[in-house]
Nucleic acid binder design. Structure first.
Lengths: 377, 377
DNA sequence: TCGGTGCGTGAATCTCGGA
DNA sequence: CTCCGAGATTCACGCACCG
């Protein structure tokens, strides 16, 4: 045990709680997560999925451009006074998680830049062996309303085994099958949880501020567990993990303190039907891969800044700027916008409108995009 | 200051090195990165881009802690020792980085799951304020040959300012321009460095194992610096940062120990030509444009007093007063204030909210401002 | 029934300069 | 330091409603 651990545990040890003789399968334990885990037996869990508080540290209200107010995560359970307190909390639940996990089990933790670096450090310090970090690329994130940063469009998951040599479960073929028969990558494009899947109370307010999409848990459970495996979620919330586990024929245990979340989760899981085994193999998924922006061709050097573009009839001449915008004829804007302005049209497809000279011939910039796409493949 | 800091600094302080009087601009300092940074003056650097090593040679001199090592090397001790050494190294270079960074400067660090969680934690502990974590999604990553994990298809960048309230540079409009006029997200799909861009020695071996693509640095520098800004790269390698900085009209300083890398970087950067200045102009930030008071348009006769303005849906009708204020619907105030009052919103951009009728069409008064600005130029 | 439009909303560390 | 006011700022979906 290292320095960090010794510093963290320099206090009186609580009396050891009595361990449960059997696992409380397919139930929710309504209790603090560390206390509840402390009563589970050693090396009894196949996989842990944890969605701990992110410690967002939000400021005041944030208003949208049209005047609406963002419904932010202001719940008390997400507030920690200092990083040190957050770290102590993380160490405490990770310690129990490690104890109850089977030697060949794995742990998944999801977070954002507010907390994931601290969690990842603690995971490594606790002796876990990181297998992958996974990026959940949100297909439809909330924009950055004030134009102050990049749109925060992803969350990070850490997947780790108990030790470097552990023989963990990874259903390689299933993942490849989910991904059109090419290896599943470490970045997953999935929509956020909305629409009918999002749990709401009688007044239409979301039951939980951070409900995760079932598609995310579907992929996690399908990748790293076998049918019948026991999955523990120590921050159960409204029970996405339990619902998907049930659907996929896995056993589950949830730990959750908040009464409202527990009630919602129980009802939800009761209404979830296990999949027929024949249906479990294939599950359609939404693909939404990134588009190609004109700026990408500029960054990659395919269209150098300073390049002169014209329309097919050479009526207008404009110059490509470093940021991929076009400048000339008294205006500046995107390939689409400037084409529209010059033609006096409401809109314009800049890809087919603008041309570059290549060996004496005018080539639409769309041809370069096709070339770029071919080069990526 | 937390526990981590106290543990890390329990040793004698080295004598303070003499500071350089002027910045060694557009040069490579061939030296250990901490020692070289220690000679740079306080608050002199606009941006730092760091690609620190994580495959540390633990037998080497640099990262070995002085004395007091434990002989009994259990797996746990060995692991912890490794992380502790890496953390100490990270703290050391981050401390110097923070000192030489201007108060409104920013730092970028790139890494993978092996080291990025530790670096991110140290960044937060050092007092930096994380602005975004950015995912470089590799368009063409190396597959996982053994089929034991997900294809490791991304790297993570952390972008941070020196403090929460710092006024850092973010060229929002330029990033939006690069991305077909929609906000740039936190996930960037870019190809890895290969083909002609990849530096190779005479025998065709790659010069540097982890050469970063210029497209990545292009986006980083375009997002977070202005022309003429000073960019420091303390792990310069083969000089991607310097090459792109030169191309984009930024000043650069590189620190690198390895002779082969330094030579390759010098030749590479010398062969890189700066872009023409006319291509360097990015989409201007609205905030930096000269302010035009609405009253100026009234004074100049462009919007005569008495003109009727409405919102886009003609829900409200107000009249322009001689002083440039608006009056109607039972209220009076500036274009912004009255728009906010009528909508019941906390704020409102009157320039885009209010419209005047011109030849049968509703035109936002912002169009008149643009016309006025064009007339001035 | 079908397509078009409009509205609501999502783990958010979300302005800035001058008095 | 605070306070105040100008003015800059949003993307992808799901769903309700309407013609």
């Amino acid at each position: 045990m290292g320095v960090l651990e010794r510093v963290g545990t320099a206090r009186a040890k609580p009396a050891k709680p009595a361990k449960l003789a059997t696992l409380p399968l397919d139930t929710i334990i309504q209790e603090d997560c560390v206390a509840a885990m402390a009563r589970l037996p050693d090396k009894s869990i196949d996989m842990i999925f944890a969605d701990p508080p992110y410690n967002l540290q939000l400021g005041g209200d944030l208003f949208r451009p049209e005047g609406g107010r963002v419904d932010a995560v202001t719940d008390a359970w997400d507030r920690f006074d200092t990083f040190e307190i957050y770290d102590r909390f993380t160490r405490a639940w990770l310690k129990e998680a490690r104890r109850i996990l089977k030697d060949d089990g794995t742990i998944w933790v999801i977070g954002s830049y507010h907390n994931i670096f601290r969690v990842g450090t603690q995971i490594q310090d606790a002796g876990f062996w990181i297998l992958n970090d996974i990026i959940w690329r949100k297909a439809n994130p909330m924009p950055n309303f004030k134009g102050t940063r990049f749109t925060n469009a992803h969350e990070t998951l850490i997947w780790a085994s108990k030790a470097e040599k552990a023989r963990y479960t990874f259903n390689y073929r299933a993942m490849k099958g989910l991904n059109d028969d090419v290896q599943m990558r470490s970045d997953w494009s999935l929509p956020i949880c909305s629409g009918g899947e999002r749990l709401k109370d009688e007044e239409g307010h979301k039951t939980h501020p951070t409900q995760k999409p079932e598609s995310l848990l579907y992929r996690v459970l399908l990748a790293a567990t076998k049918p019948g495996d026991v999955v523990l979620d120590p921050f159960f919330g409204t029970g996405t993990t339990g619902a998907v586990a049930r659907r996929l024929g896995r056993r589950w245990i949830g730990i959750e303190r908040e009464d409202a979340y527990v009630k919602a989760a129980r009802a939800r899981i009761a209404a979830t039907l296990p999949l027929d085994e024949s249906a479990m193999a294939v599950m359609p998924e939404k693909r939404s891969e990134p588009r190609v922006a004109f700026g990408l061709l500029v960054e990659s050097g395919m269209v150098p800044p300073g390049t002169i573009l014209t329309d097919a009839k050479r009526r207008w001449r404009v110059r490509v700027q470093v940021d991929g915008s076009l400048s000339g004829e008294g205006s500046q804007g995107s390939i689409h916008k400037l084409g529209a302005i010059l033609q006096g049209a409401p809109s314009c497809n800049g890809w087919t409108f603008w041309h570059a000279e290549e060996m004496g011939a005018l080539v639409p910039i769309d041809a370069m995009r096709q070339r770029h796409l071919a080069g990526m493949a």
